[in-house]
Every structure is written in structure tokens, then in C-alpha cells.
Amino acid sequence: MRVVAEFTTEPFYGEGEPPDHARLAWQVVQEAGLKGDFGPLGTEIEGDRDAVLDVLRTVMAVALNAGATRITLQLHTEL
């Protein structure tokens, strides 16, 4: 089963470079080899259910450690 996850880390700081919590979360996704799209208002990743779920735990831990105060997550499946 394929899963698509979209997550947003906060706080936002406006224009300029993405905050560390967003940038480092995206780095985790890239290192895991998952397909994804890093955007200013959220990051979307997709892949095998277990691979996505496994990387999301690391994404959340890294983002929180880098200063995120809120993480919003949406998941949906593609059969």
C-alpha cells in the first residue's frame, strides 16, 4: 500500500530561508530516498506505507529538536 503524507512544521518566520526545523525535516526525507516535494507551506512525501511511517517518526523528532513547536500531519492512502 502506498501512503502520501503532508506535514507542516511551525513556527513560520515569513520570507527568507526556511527555518532549521523545516530544512532538517526535509533532509531526513531526502536521506531516506522517498519521493517528495518541499514547499513553503508544507512538505509532501510518498512511498510504501512502512517506509513513510518509519521516516515520519524521525522527521518529527528532528523537527522538534530543531525548534518546531507544532507539526501538522495529514496521511492518505493510494491503493
Rank of each mutant, 00 (worst) to 15 (best):
H21V: 05
R2G: 08
V28M: 10
V28R: 15
L73K: 10
G36N: 00
G42I: 10
L41A: 06
F38H: 02
A63P: 02
F12K: 08
L73V: 15
A5H: 05
I45H: 09
Q27E: 15
R70A: 15
Y13Q: 12
R2P: 00
Q27C: 01
G42V: 09
T69F: 04
G67Q: 05
D54W: 02
D48E: 15
V29P: 04
E10R: 14
T69Y: 13
R57S: 14
W26L: 00
V28Y: 11
A5M: 12
F38A: 03
V28D: 11
L24F: 07
D37F: 00
G67A: 11
A61F: 04
D48R: 09
Y13I: 15
F38C: 00
V3Y: 04
L75H: 07
P40D: 02
V62L: 12
R57M: 06
E10C: 14
A5E: 01
F12S: 09
A32H: 05
L56P: 03
A25G: 04
P18A: 15
V55L: 06
D54F: 04
R70H: 15
T69I: 11
T8F: 08
V29F: 11
W26H: 00
A22T: 03
R2D: 07
L64M: 15
A68W: 14
A22Y: 02
P40R: 10
T43G: 01
Q30R: 13
Q74A: 10
A68N: 06
E17M: 04
D48H: 06
L56Y: 06
T72E: 05
L34A: 11
A25Q: 06
A22P: 05
E46C: 08
E44W: 06
D50A: 13
G42T: 09
V52D: 02
A61Y: 01
H76V: 10
Q74G: 08
R57P: 01
L41R: 09
